[in-house]
Design a protein around this nucleic acid. Structure first.
Length: 885
DNA sequence: CTGCAAATCCTTTTT
DNA sequence: GGATTTGCAG
């Protein structure tokens, strides 16, 4: 125990310094269950970290007895960092982690009790979909009617609500036995039966593949704790204080998990005279959240968890934090008004001492491009004249698809930016392929990943070869890998296929041996896989320009692995796989206080928890925000409104709201009406730089719609009345009482940053060598600040813009005009009879060509055209974008 | 079995 | 506008 790191125990005075009354009360509160209802910008992370330090410093509790849960790795890392300044380096080894990593950790330790072998795989969405698709095909399910996506959504619902597949099966399909394979069901009595069967089969396959999905991480941990009291007892004994951040985003499963971990339902009683939670009673719980910022209902979050906290936990206490330290009063007034229109919420009103501040600035553009370029101009002005740094500015939007026009405008204006989110680095095809190899090496039974790489890179093993393995696996109730190892025993395999399968098997055996011998060196395993599998070679030999970026991504993957190795004391292949499986968008955001010199672009969801001096809320249109899919659903609209509230409250000093009259979605232009949220903001708070768009001016009317102020009576509900309940008797924290147990902290260092942070982020601008892995940095090395020197030449801009359009095909040269006229509803009116060998035609993509062949097949007539350097193409006449010359 | 071009979905939001 | 699936030819 001598190497126990030093723990700083701070005094109450130190820990309460600079806090307001409510914050102080929250830090000190002595009791089994505390809800801190923390409005936006009310300093909740501060309160949470101080409370942890207080529990330790004043309550004499060991760091190992505390469990703090967040939703993102980024939040966890930040909390650790802040804790470190309060209590010392021991903070880095505390259980401060996300729900998901905490569960992984628990399952790695005791998962064998519920049938999980160590080294289990964690399936991401893509893996899940592959698996469900396989099952649907085998079950003869019409995937047009029941898409894997929708089936998975249902399965996710089951899991978030802890509905076991056995229960579902018993109720809706008692005759179904998972794992029988020969099930050509085809028809189901009803939908529930179908869902139940797929769910059961899905779980069966996961089990044989020794894999879990995201939702399983929570549900199966609950199962473990619930069914194995000795395991539960271990954690009850260990965690005496549990703190949960963003409690409004918890789903039912997570709620139950917290209860299980705390032992709330286990009739535990504290020893007589216990101080705090004592040694034996249920753990004491602190949750922090804001029901107005609940924006994850679509993912199963249940807002009732926070709304009914006081009912759920005996002797619960609620403390409201309503003083905002972030924004101006103008911004808060707007936010308060918007959120006040949600019915049935606990009234709450943020206030600030920071003063009125500037008006909100509004701008109505004619289209998305104009909106974006106006924003770019405005940003240049802010940076040039108002002295803001680019890093002070964030642009937010409802859906990722909106980022493109904004990116283009930034590039055109030479403004450095960083885009957060979009397609995940680990979801990129080539990266996923490489990871599938690693996964299959770590866990041989992982069918989904093994089948994925069977023919990647191309090695002549197609559907037939795969069927050889799956048939054997099916009849022998085993995995595809097992089938592969019994290859010689399988009859009727064509010699050629057998040979190729044998080669693949030997490849995997060789790689696995390498992996076992180099378990602590994931980066070398990655290198070996890339090399021996031929994955890298295939891409390097390719002429497709996109494959070059793929090669870069793969080398980046290797760097990420190397970085993981360096930062993790006891690195293993499994550890690496785990970390990469649990990364989130927000993980790639820069650290607090780090000046990246770049404007940040991200979705509103990703922006939750962040703050910027200047915020642009873009796409404020009906159908964009609120999103069209939520517009006719009352509860979803309420969630959109909360999202608007989140967006508005991100701004510290200046808030912009912008909209476009025309926005194209799926390549089709659509006219957009102003968002209802714009009307919800009191008109005198907005200074419109341009209120009407061109077409609206011509029509001479705006705001014909909805002027209904019928809800305005809601506004004054009074922000008082809460938090006035008298609270617990004095302090009660005995001093110094010491508990023995807490010596060993878990070893694996989770949540440490940087690796994991990889996302397919694009970023363009100044700093090259910065440590942002997984994010490409375009642009010159020099700092591209607005005025000192245009570092971006026209040519570079062109390159950057091209790189946005993921280097599609070879279309670039000719594809200038037309595309619009190519297909006039179901045919281009061309007639086979008009085409003969030797005719010259023009193709939108390939340019000029000469007809070298004509096949008259009626509707499906085909002409063969020689496009010279572009090659000889066979075109379906009916749809080909061509013109006879 | 592979490669290519056309057709067909799309999109909320994410651990 | 873009990624993925389908359909066909060699």
């Amino acid at each position: 125990m001598n190497d126990e790191p030093e723990v700083i125990r701070r005094s109450a005075d130190e820990l309460l310094a600079g806090l307001n009354e409510q914050q102080t009360e929250a830090v000190k509160y002595y009791g089994p269950a505390l809800l801190i209802a923390a409005g936006a910008g009310s300093g909740k992370t501060r309160v949470l970290t101080r409370r942890i330090a207080y529990i330790m410093g004043v309550g004499g509790v060991w760091p190992s007895q505390i469990l703090a849960i967040t939703f993102t790795n980024k939040a966890a890392a930040e909390m650790k960092q802040r804790l470190e300044t309060l209590i010392g380096p021991v903070a880095q080894r505390m259980w401060v982690s996300t729900f998901h990593s905490a569960c992984v950790r628990i399952l790695r330790r005791d998962g064998d009790r519920i049938g999980l072998k160590s080294g289990f795989s964690i399936y991401d969405t893509a893996d899940q979909q592959r698996l469900v698709k396989i099952i649907c095909t085998e079950m003869n399910i019409d995937v047009k009617r029941y898409t894997p996506r929708s089936i998975l959504a249902r399965i996710s619902d089951y899991k978030n609500n802890l509905q076991d597949w056995r229960t579902q099966l018993k109720e809706y399909a008692p005759q179904f036995k998972p794992g029988q394979r020969n099930l050509k069901m085809g028809s189901f009595g009803n939908v529930e039966e179908l869902y139940a069967c797929v769910y059961a089969e899905y779980q069966y396959r996961l089990a044989t593949a020794n894999a879990v999905d995201f939702d399983d991480l929570i549900m199966r941990t609950v199962e473990l704790l619930h069914d194995h009291p000795d395991v539960a007892a271990y954690y009850h004994h260990r965690f005496r204080y549990i703190l949960v951040d963003e409690y409004q985003d918890t789903n039912h499963a997570q709620y139950v998990l917290v209860r299980e971990l705390a032992g709330v339902d286990d009739k535990l009683t504290p020893e007589p005279g216990a101080v705090g939670a004592g040694k034996n009673g249920p753990a004491w719980i602190t949750v922090v959240g804001d029901s107005d910022q609940s924006i994850y209902a679509f993912r199963g979050a249940d807002i009732r968890n926070i709304q009914e906290f006081e009912k759920d936990f005996p002797n619960a206490k609620t403390i409201m934090l309503e003083q905002n330290y972030r924004s101006t009063q103008t911004i808060l007034d707007a936010a308060n008004k918007v959120i006040s229109l949600n019915p049935g919420r606990k009234p709450k009103k943020l206030w600030t001492a920071l003063g009125q501040g500037d008006k909100i600035i509004g701008y109505a553009a004619d289209n998305a491009q104009q909106e974006a370029s106006w924003i770019a101009t405005e940003i240049a002005r802010l940076a040039g004249e108002e002295g803001f740094s680019y890093a002070d500015i964030a642009i937010m939007y409802r859906a990722n698809a909106q980022s493109r026009s904004l990116e283009e405008a930034m590039i055109n204006a030479g403004i450095p930016y960083q885009l957060v989110g979009g397609t995940r680095f680990y979801e990129r095809r080539e990266v996923k392929d490489a990871m599938a190899y690693l996964q299959a090496l770590a866990n041989p039974d992982d069918d989904v990943n093994l089948r994925r790489i069977l023919n990647v890179p191309k090695r002549g093993l197609g559907a037939r070869a795969e069927a050889v393995l799956t048939d054997y696996a099916g009849t022998h109730q085993t995995s595809a890998w097992e089938a592969l190892t019994h290859l010689d025993a399988i009859e009727g395999v064509p010699t050629r296929t057998a040979k190729l399968l044998g080669q693949f098997r030997d490849l995997m055996i060789g790689l696995r041996e390498f992996a076992t011998n180099n378990d602590a060196k994931p980066s070398e395993i990655v290198a070996e896989v890339l090399d021996k599998s031929g994955l890298l070679a295939e891409l390097q030999q390719s002429t497709d320009p996109q494959d070059q970026t793929r090669v870069e991504n793969l080398s980046q993957l290797q760097s990420t692995a190397a970085e993981f190795e360096q930062n993790t004391p006891d690195a293993t292949l499994n550890g690496f796989l785990e970390t990469t499986a649990l990364v989130a968008d927000s993980d790639q955001l820069p650290d607090e206080g780090e000046d990246t010199g770049k404007v940040t672009l991200m979705t509103l969801h990703t922006a939750k928890g962040l703050e910027y001096p200047v915020v642009f809320l873009t796409g404020m249109e009906q159908g964009t925000f609120p999103h069209s899919r939520s517009i006719d659903n009352e509860s979803e609209l309420e969630e959109e409104r909360r999202l608007a509230y989140v967006g508005i409250t991100r701004a510290r000093q200046i808030l912009y709201v912008t909209r476009a009259a025309v926005r194209s979605q799926w390549g089709q232009a659509a006219e957009m009406m102003p968002s209802q949220f714009l009307d919800d903001i009191p008109a005198d708070l907005i200074d419109w730089k341009r209120k009407e768009t061109s077409t609206e001016k011509m029509r001479g009317g705006w705001g014909d719609f909805d002027d209904d102020d019928e809800f305005s009576g809601f506004e004054d509900f009074g922000g008082s009345s809460y938090g006035s309940k008298s609270y617990g008797s004095g302090s009660g924290w005995g001093s110094g009482s010491s508990y023995g147990s807490g010596s060993s902290y878990g070893s694996g260092s989770y949540g440490s940053k940087s690796y994991g942070s990889s996302r397919g982020s694009r970023s363009y601008g100044s700093d090259y060598g910065s440590k942002s892995y997984g994010s490409k940095s375009y642009g010159s090395g020099s700092s591209g600040s607005g005025r000192n020197g245009k570092v971006t030449t026209k040519r570079m801009k062109k390159q950057l813009l091209d790189s946005l359009t993921s280097a599609k095909k070879k279309a670039s040269a000719t594809g200038s005009a037309s595309a619009a006229e190519s297909s006039s509803a179901g045919g281009n009116g061309l007639n086979v009879a008009d085409f003969h060998e030797g005719d010259r035609i023009s193709h939108d993509q390939y340019g000029l060509g000469k007809v070298v062949g004509v096949q008259d097949k009626g509707r499906n007539s085909v002409i063969t055209v020689d496009f010279g350097s572009e090659g000889v193409k066979r075109l379906l006449l009916r749809v080909a974008p061509i013109e006879k010359l």
